[in-house]
Every structure is written in structure tokens, then in C-alpha cells.
Amino acid sequence: MNIWDWEFAWRIMPLLLDAVVITVYATVLGFAFAAVFGLVLALMRRSHRPWISLPTVAFVEFVRSTPLLVQIYFLYFVLPEFGVLMPAIVAGILGLGLHFSTYCSEVYRAGLDGVPRGQWEAAVSLNMSRYRTYRDIVIPQAIPPVVPALGNYLVGMIKETPLLSSIAVVEVMQQAKIIGSETFRYIEPITLVGAFFLVVSLVAMMGIRRTEAWLRQKVLGSH
């Protein structure tokens, strides 16, 4: 038996590519959720009302300190106990989204803290409400500088999607395992999956570096 069978690798490619669609789908939806909910968490954490900010801090720290895999199990096995039934893929996307929303919230927090105090004071001098100040003044300035950091977590999330295989979502890792168990050849499918993630991360990292350079140039160019 030869070590690497090109012909076999070629044959399983369409199967794997079909599963890549699920991986990408879960990442896109999961990250959309994380990006939006992360901002909500960051804003709640900055609330002047301790009954909003303190539970938010506790939630963020708790979710960040415990494994995503167990959180996915929690959503998948525990929520049905309370009558919330959902397909595995939904539990998986929700798990990814919740977990990464806590990371995103820290990124947004840094962005929000980076907006100078004077911007707030100018908004007060124009008698703008807190909501309006966040919406028109602070958030538009807080987000562009943190886009690269969010990008890093997007790459981080796609690499965590194989965890969905643990609740039988047929994303690319699960597909590779299925192929392996049916053909008794694991090397090609798992290596191809690894290569897929490697290519995606390297390309994404290049994109992030470009964005960073562009942002830096935009800032420098403005002076």
C-alpha cells in the first residue's frame, strides 16, 4: 500500500468540497452573530448601570474561560430539556457565535476605549443623547481600527468549526472521518482537510495584513 494515493485523493475531493460549503456556512453565520452580539456585549459592559455591566463581565469571563466543545454540548443536549429543540447545525452555529462574541466584545472594548474623550465632550456640548453619540460619533470611529483584530477571530472561528463534527454536523472534518471509516484510508482525507484550513488561514492572514497596512496608510495620509 503506497503512502499517498493521488487518485484516491482526487476521487474524494468533490465530497470534501461539498462539506466545505457547510463549514463556510457555519463560519459566516456564526461570525455574523459574534460580530453583532459582541458589540452588544461591549456596550452593555460599558453601561453605567451595574446591574447591566456586572452580569455582562461575568458572562464574558465565563464563556471565555470554558471550552467551546462543552458549550456546544450544553446547547445541543441541555436546551432541549427546556423545550428548545434545534438541529445540530443551529446549536453549533449558536455555540460558535456565543463563544466568539466574547472575544469580539473585548476587541470592540479596545476600540471604544480608543476614541478620545474629547469626542464625548464635543457630543455633550452639542447636547447629543448617549445613544446618538454612540451611534454617530463613537462607534463609527471605534470599529475601523479593530477590523484586523476581528479578522483574526474570523480565522480563529473557521479553525474551530471542526468541533461541530462532535455533534454529527457533516462539515469538512466529519466528512473526512466518514470517508476514513468507510475506506480505511485516513491520510488523504484528513491531510486534505488540514491543507484546506492552512490555505484559508494563510490567504486570510494576507488579507488582514493588507487591511492593516491600508488602515495605517489612511491614518498617516490624513495628517
Binding site: P116, Q119, S125, L126, S222
Partner: peptide, 30 residues
């Protein structure tokens, strides 16, 4: 506070808006 306006030492213009955008932001939304 509606009756009070302030001009700052360091201007504190909104950097992501044009000059006109800075001037019309609060009249529209406040």
C-alpha cells in the same frame, strides 16, 4: 443644557465627518 454651547481648546471635531457634516449633525439629530 440645550441653551449652552462650547468651543474647545483642541477643537474636538468629528474626524469621520466633513466640515458640513460636523455642523449639521446635531441640528438634525438633536
Amino acid at each position: 443644557r440645550q441653551r449652552i454651547g462650547m468651543v474647545f481648546q483642541h477643537f474636538h471635531l468629528f474626524p469621520h465627518m466633513s466640515a458640513l457634516g460636523n455642523v449639521i449633525e446635531a441640528p438634525i439629530h438633536v
